[in-house]
Write a protein that binds this DNA or RNA. Structure first.
Lengths: 353, 353
DNA sequence: CTGAAAGCGCTAACAG
DNA sequence: CTGTTAGCGCTTTCAG
């Protein structure tokens, strides 16, 4: 235990550095920030030495207060355990890191109250911008962040947001409905007639309608052949998929193909199929949505729709930061004009269909 | 576009509230914080009305500066896409949320430089505490946070940290070595002789030795029967597991059982086995580590060691916050005494062994 | 019960 | 090129 050797640095501030270096506090600032005033090389070195000797680090809290800018982004997702969100948040974080921004993450667990609490927290903590990833977004929430001039941005699928809310927030959307349509066509081509869809929140969660509307595309494809799917609204976890599939497959006329709202559900379906000794894809075709990493490693490998998660994330962060503006003295955050940017999805055919 | 109807709240501060309510700024504080001075019910109401009318919210940045406390915790993990980390971070976040703390997450990607950058960032941002989850922790890093009096805590496996560093930081550890031993015994009981182990970072990542030492327990078990495993150090992703397993299984005398350092690797192994038409568990037994949710849904279901992730996380947050102290005026953070707390692991036998 | 005022650590305009 | 200083929004001591 050599704890005795640790030098306890009692809150070294910029004042201490100034005193130690024999300069004014302003000069310390000029050196730390490379401006706005020039500093002679000699003084610069003295300051740097002082900084080093004292182990000084800028207090970002004080700096944020002064600058009216925190270099922090708030990210709201429903659940970081779901790889769809984990992968997007990871991409956001990585991209933001390179631009020297930090990320505050909030899991709403599809709970509107909890989401509101995070919203309030983000506002109080003065995040420079906010990203909502596939969360239910009541118009009051958007109004709120607009009131506070916080640039905000929605990542999700086309059709996620009701149209009257859609034009209130800048969005980067993947073509989820089209993705659903591609799945429908694909399954049709494989000769399937009786198809089911496990998608969307349970009926008793009225507000959480995310990932629901992409069913539209699927249904449209089927309707072109005068078919229509059985739909189960069940949730979004492995277990939800497992449970729904059991119910579906133990019926009299079970579907020959199941399309799910995300890959977790699909993997749950695969698990149910295995338990029921159903051969996939021969006796049952399964198609997911998201293309999480695990989709390529389950047995059989999962056919799914690839969402361009990285592009979504990077696009979002870049757009947000572009709009944060870089007025030195803080200045107004420039409101994000309400636009929509679309990214393509892609059908990835693997072994499960 | 009814943007015109949005009231633009130009930074409402406590001063505005005070003026509007016709009281001093101090009183506004007393009301907002329920203290430290009492306020008459009448004034209280006036202030509350003002707050409501103006849409005032406390500026946490200013508050943090004044209080020398940010109600923010920094969490360092290697990669949030790995469900092991995702589940732990999620539990940390949930628990912290209820205590009104926010979480700043940094993915180190097993990169020491990046970890250091995050460390610096957390220090500058004045987090009230830090949690390291299974990250490589050089003693200089610990010395640094000790110098700044930041309560910090390590979550991981026994054996993760070299012993000379171990007594520098408070740790909450699961019994990973014992877990490895249980796996060894289990596989031995199943009659396996030729066993392999895919664990630990690639050889060319000298610093990232996490998840490596739990092999000790496995080897010990085998050595009791005068056996020893083939060891491949390969990484920690699905693909690493897949690749390592292919290499292992296409040899002349392939192992009959493979133990991996985490569940991702194990799922990769399962995938390789399927490609090679190897029946699991008949021709090959596979055992993972972590018990991520997916382990129960892959085909076949994965035998693994359960790490008490939630307990680890909650224990960590509680311990940290207990030590942050609640001196109103800020006050010293009380250093965490260097202790170790152990949590049990558990063998979960499913279909893959 | 209420108010005045000091000060947390920093930036940047402005004066020299 | 360097220094002085106002002020970001808040909490809390202390005096009334």
């Amino acid at each position: 235990m050599f704890k005795g050797s640790i030098v306890l640095k009692q809150r070294v501030t910029r004042n201490d550095v100034a005193k130690y270096a024999g300069v004014s506090t302003a000069v310390v600032s000029y050196v730390m920030n490379n401006g706005p005033q020039p500093v002679s090389e000699k003084t610069r070195l003295r300051v740097l030495t002082a900084v080093n000797d004292l182990g000084y680090r800028t207090n970002q809290i004080a700096r944020s207060l002064r600058m009216q800018r925190t270099r922090t982004l708030g990210v709201l997702i429903s659940n970081s355990i779901n790889p769809y969100f984990a992968e997007i948040v990871n991409a956001i974080e990585t991209y933001a890191f390179n631009l020297d921004y930090s990320i505050l993450v909030g899991n709403t667990n599809n709970n509107l109250e909890r989401q509101q609490t995070y919203l309030d927290s983000f506002i109080s903590r003065k995040v420079d911008g906010m990203i909502f990833v596939s969360t239910t977004l009541p118009s009051e929430a958007i109004t709120l962040i607009n009131e506070f001039h916080i640039p905000a941005l929605y990542i999700g699928s086309e059709g996620d947001i009701e149209s009257e809310v859609q034009n209130l927030i800048y969005s980067i959307l993947f073509k989820g409905i089209e993705g659903g349509y591609m799945v429908g066509r694909h399954l049709l081509e494989r000769g399937h007639k009786r198809m089911a869809c496990i998608i969307g929140a349970r009926q008793d969660y009225p507000y959480v309608s995310m990932r629901w509307l992409r069913l539209k595309g699927f249904s449209r494809a089927l309707s072109e052949e005068s078919l229509s799917p059985v739909v189960i609204r069940q949730g979004e976890t492995f277990f939800d998929g497992y449970q729904a599939a059991r119910a579906l497959l133990e019926k009299d006329e079970p579907p020959t193909a199941i399309f799910t709202g995300n890959d977790l559900l699909a993997i749950g379906v695969l698990s149910a199929a295995a338990d029921l000794k159903l051969k996939v894809p021969d006796q049952l075709a399964v198609c997911g949505f998201d293309d999480i990493e695990a989709a390529s490693y389950v047995n059989p490998r999962l056919t799914t729709i690839r969402i361009p998660k990285r592009e979504l994330a990077e696009n979002a962060v870049q757009t947000l930061i572009d709009h944060i503006g870089c007025h030195p003295q803080g200045g107004e955050l420039t409101a994000l004009s309400t636009k929509i940017h679309y990214l393509e999805t892609q059908l990835v055919v693997r072994e499960s269909t």
